[in-house]
Amino acid sequence: MKKTMVTRTFKFVDAVLKQKADEFINLLDRDSVEFAERGYDAAAKTSFENARDAVAGFPSDETLEAQKIQLTAAKDAARSVLEKTMRTIFNMASNHFGAQSAQYRAFGPADIARQPDAELARTYKIMVPAATANLAAMAAEGLSQTIIDTLTTQGIALDDRIDAVAKGISDRDVATEGRIETLNTLYSYVTKYAGIGQDIFYEINEAKYNDYVLYDTPSGMPDVPPI
């Protein structure tokens, strides 16, 4: 069964939620006498603070996206150098055997620029044994064991970077989900104490009541209709 995607239970910008948590912790210190009757003590404060601090332990979405971009750039660079070597070997094979020959086709599909990364990685693995088998025959075209070794090294590098991108995407998804779950937990603390604060100060202290009012908007402030 496919796992349900975790989503934010709030509309605040993440930084605004953390700011609200900081603000509420200070308010609860100020109003500790009133809140003590509702179970807010040192242990409850520590739990609230731990929930706030846990948010800072996760990398931001922007950081995770930057890491993915860096991994993708490294993969693209590895692909570029591999393609160059493969085109050279295809050219050597075409010059020696002819582009329509069975020997040339043994080097794999030549449309490497259009091949997805995984297919290109498969093509280089076809090319390595074909080039090795025809090393003596194609030596006059410039093929050498050094070129074949370079092809192998570059192919392995591309394989590794394809895996790194896949892992980076997976790690980003896991980290993003964990971050959202942690933010949702913090939001549950904020809304709990917002509700208690409003209940305590309702029709008793308007200023303090307003301190505990939350607006579920990105800014945390009430939406103001345009004039």
Rank of each mutant, 00 (worst) to 15 (best):
A78F: 01
R38K: 15
E37L: 15
E34Q: 15
E62W: 07
F58R: 01
Q115C: 11
I112D: 00
Q100L: 11
Q67E: 12
P59R: 09
F107G: 05
K45G: 00
T85W: 01
Q115S: 15
R52T: 06
A110T: 09
Q115K: 15
A44T: 10
G108M: 00
A54H: 09
A106C: 03
D111R: 10
F90C: 04
A56T: 13
N95Y: 09
F35L: 14
V33Q: 14
A42F: 07
E37K: 14
V33Y: 15
M92T: 01
K45C: 06
L82Y: 03
A36Y: 11
P116A: 09
T85G: 09
Q103R: 09
M86S: 10
K75P: 06
T72W: 02
G98Y: 08
T46H: 03
L64A: 07
S60L: 09
A42N: 13
E49S: 08
P109R: 11
A77K: 14
R52K: 14
R52G: 03
F97I: 03
L71A: 15
E34G: 02
G39I: 08
R105N: 12
K75E: 00
E65F: 09
A78N: 02
A51I: 00
F35C: 10
M86C: 09
G108W: 03
Q70V: 13
N50M: 08
I112T: 07
M92R: 04
Q70C: 05
K45H: 12
A106Y: 00
S94R: 11
Y104C: 02
A73P: 01
D76L: 06
A42H: 11
R79P: 03
D53C: 00
R87Q: 13
G108C: 01
R105Y: 06
T46K: 14
K68D: 12
A78W: 05
S47T: 10
R38P: 05
E49L: 08
E49V: 14
A74K: 06
L82V: 01
S47L: 13
D76S: 03
A42K: 13
A102P: 03
A54W: 02
R87D: 12
A110Y: 05
E34D: 12
H96K: 15
A74Y: 02
F58D: 00
A113N: 13
D41N: 15
V33L: 15
A36M: 12
S101F: 06
D76M: 02
G57E: 11
P116C: 10
F35T: 09
N50R: 11
A54L: 08
A66Q: 14
T72C: 05
L64R: 10
K68W: 02
A74G: 07
T46M: 11
I69P: 02
R105C: 02
T88E: 14
Q100G: 12
Q100R: 12
S60P: 08
S94Y: 08
Q100C: 05
D61P: 04
A73L: 13
V55G: 05
F90D: 07
A42G: 10
N95M: 10
V81N: 08
F48K: 04
Q115F: 03
G108F: 04
G57W: 08
Y104A: 00
R105E: 07
